[in-house]
């Protein structure tokens, strides 16, 4: 039986500042999860991952993370780890959430 593909976003950390980054529909790395490209098929996901792995000057440790379409239309994370990565630490606001 073919397993149903769970939608994904492509994410990594930025080489220089370590920031969490996402691949968007314009073929660029962005910092906002909501702007990430929600990938619906496995072949595209694997192709984009391979492409990210060939960009070591920007992306460190790229991987595909589960995500879903949010009510506002953008991609939203489905696991709490990925949710924390979109915002920054929860002990007090001094990560991405403080820059917004």
């Amino acid at each position: 039986m073919v397993r149903k593909f769970t939608p994904k976003v492509l994410t990594a950390n930025h080489l220089i500042n370590g920031d969490v980054i996402y691949w968007n529909a314009d073929d660029r790395w962005v910092g906002n999860h909501g702007e990430a490209l929600l990938i619906d098929d496995e072949a595209t996901a694997n192709a984009l991952l391979a492409q990210a792995q060939s960009q070591p000057e920007i992306a460190v440790g790229p991987y595909l993370a589960n995500a879903a379409r949010g009510s506002a239309g953008g991609a939203v994370p489905t696991h709490f780890r990925e949710e924390f990565r979109t915002r920054g630490p929860s002990n007090y606001q001094h990560g991405k959430q403080a820059e917004a």
Binding site: N17, D19, P56, R85
Partner: peptide, 28 residues
């Protein structure tokens, strides 16, 4: 050398770890 592409991340990781530098969830 990591920034100019002479070293891959796989080559660089053990070198940075030897100097206490990790890449964590949100940053180094």
């Amino acid at each position: 050398r990591r920034i100019d592409g002479s070293l891959t991340e796989d080559e660089f990781r053990p070198l940075r770890l030897m100097n206490g530098l990790y890449l964590q969830l949100h940053a180094y």
